[in-house]
Amino acid sequence: MTNLVLPDPERLAARIQGGERAAVASGLNLLDNRLPAARSHAVRLLACLSGERSLSAGHLIGVTGPPGAGKSSLVSAMIREWRLAGRTVGVLAVDPSSRPELGGGALLGDRIRIKSVGQDEGLFIRSLANRNQLGGVASEVWPMSWLLLACFDVVVIETVGVGQTEIDIAEIGDTVCYVAQPASGDTIQYLKSGIIEIPDIFAVNKADLGAAARKTASEIGRSAPRQDRREGWDYPVCLLSATMQTGIKEFHAHFDRHRRFLVAAGLLERQRSQHQSGWVLRLLKEEFGTFGLGLLGGRTTIEERLGACRSSQFEEYERMREHILSRLLSVNQPTLSP
């Protein structure tokens, strides 16, 4: 057996909310841990970090786009703006894992690309491999971003967009930004796939390429109609260059504007609550399968129950989990009784 010691969730949560970096790091390790004992500790930690504040505080931002679009340098430029404005930033940088038959390892190189000024206590970066999970976003990403939101003003999730990822990321972030690569087939594929409905803000990086970048921007701009276009949001398309540092300020301003829009439309809390429900469902299904969900009355019923207690969904999750376990045990009861 290992000599691994799991931290006490309640005390850890208090230290995280106090902004203690060591606690943030060890909380992330706990959320990442798949040992059964660690799983139950993790849920208790998340329950401690939830509450009304967790539905309204901070800003959770997803940044996605094809490989080579310059997401990391763009995120780096955005971080600089937030830090200059005195806001703290937590980053989850997700990189692909190699295929299981190739060892399943990963080279996490985003940290080196994102990191700007050497020693900055207001910036925290955790790199993560996607571990070949369906959709390209590891299931650990949502709880980890929830943890970071408890102690950083802005939380950025950076992922490589390969289609499905954008849908996943939209089930995590308040604001989703797509970074397009000028003059490449990716963007055209992207437009065709219909995933263009997801992002709230578009960035066409490498504007220094000139005509190619302008062409891509206008292609994205023309790609309407959108199915579920939100009234009152303009879906800006920004031409910028992260390396030449042009257009960053204008681009950056859209994030705060989008958050204000979400608050005014009453969408911020609703979305976060939905994202939380989504993760609870994912956990239940992972542990008990569709059969387990059935024991609780099915997906819709569970969603309703979770929706009714928006700020204490993890407690509700514990209750549902115990309910399933007791039902499973009671099913077995007859054979166990004398």
């Binding site: 970096r21 060591a22 790091a25 060890s26 992330l28 390790n29 990442d32 894992s97 060892g103 399943g104 390892g105 990963a106 080279l107 996490l108 190189g109 940290r111 080196i112 050497g118 020693q119 925290f124 970066i125 955790r126 790199s127 491999a129």
Partner: peptide, 25 residues
């Protein structure tokens, strides 16, 4: 061989390395 590797590159201070070790777990 299956490690998840954080490559942090050149020109780092001992402080930065320790900070990365902590943040990255």
């Amino acid at each position: 061989v299956g490690f998840e590797v954080v490559y942090d590159g050149i020109r780092l201070t001992p402080q930065q390395i320790a900070q990365a070790a902590q943040e990255e777990g």
